[in-house]
Design a protein around this nucleic acid. Structure first.
Lengths: 175, 175
DNA sequence: GTTGATGCAAACTATTTGCAGGCAG
DNA sequence: CTGCCTGCAAATAGTTTGCATCAAC
């Protein structure tokens, strides 16, 4: 099934994600947990995927790479990765959780197209600052936040998708 | 149980929520749906509750008022109210949906205390404006949005609740 | 009278958990 | 070896749905 890898090419960082792996290992060690093959595979798969994913598609992706890992373990490991701060868990209007790998300290919010389901990520320091200001005003100590804007992306507007038609679905959103 | 109402005082809008009721009725009529006793009771209960609630507590509240309405009907009717725009459905970090009555066109965002679960609502036009600006930049047509800031409220900070202790739970958030 | 609504229980989806055997440290 | 880990299947939680009966128009 798999083409034999060219032995001539330099192995481009064979160790999939060394930094994340190190962080996960140390996280596990401090809790006397074990770095098993399944956990390694999960970590790799998570950091291989560029954007949002859900538990099921991750499970499927692993299976397609020949990694047989049970759903239960997928959930359990995702949980560890979340606790460890390597993964973020979010609700994006669906009835199931979405996850995304955290690269560095980067944070972003989402524009979600209600027609094609495309998710556009953005980060605006001034928006973050304004949120900080609001929290100060309420003497509220923020630890985390989540902003999602639902609507129509440029392409879907061009396609002439009817905003009103979607208006009904807007209110149905579970977010 | 109920004190006899003073007959001298002007009946302060006896019809629980006339505007909302009218809107719901017309919504139903245009779809050839029926305005049943259950739907009326649900509508009343929803607009009686000041803030956020979930399907189950609504069901319970009705039951305690002597209204026996099945869970299925609660869900079905909430759905109608949402479609009709009288109720908003949201995910506030829990695994179940939250709902809130929509009063007029008012919109607000949430500060959610991770210790006592208190929900503080706020509305900031400048924040909304900034979001609009971001959407324009991406040529994205916003139809709806949701901002939740998780953290510690003033009181819980004073109580000396440990932010770090919560840091773990932060990442667990399903939002 | 029609047609849609309700309650019940069963079905479903996403996720969690108990347990017996397996593997990392 | 010891204790954590895994897969499995059963358990949960929240929500949805099929169906026979009932009520609104």
């Amino acid at each position: 099934m798999v083409r034999a890898p060219s032995p001539h090419r330099l192995a481009p960082r064979k160790q999939a994600h060394p930094e994340e792996q190190a962080r996960f290992e140390s996280f596990l060690r401090t809790r006397q947990l074990k770095y098993t093959g399944e956990r390694r595979a999960l970590l790799d798969a998570v950091f291989a995927s560029k954007h949002h994913f859900d538990a099921d598609s991750l499970h499927l992706a692993l299976r397609q790479k020949g990694q047989e890992i049970s759903r239960a373990t997928v959930y359990r490991t995702l949980d560890l990765l979340v606790q460890c701060g390597l993964v973020r868990k979010q609700s994006l209007g669906d009835q199931h959780a979405h996850y995304e790998a955290v690269h560095g300290d980067e944070h972003h919010d989402h524009l979600i197209c209600m027609n094609c389901n495309r998710i556009i990520e953005f980060y605006r320091p001034d928006l973050e600052a304004m949120q900080e200001a609001i929290c100060e005003e309420f003497e509220f100590k923020p630890l985390h936040h989540s902003l999602q804007i639902f609507g129509l992306c440029k392409l879907c507007q061009a396609k002439g998708v009817d905003g009103l038609e979607l208006a009904t679905r807007v209110s149905q959103l579970h977010a």
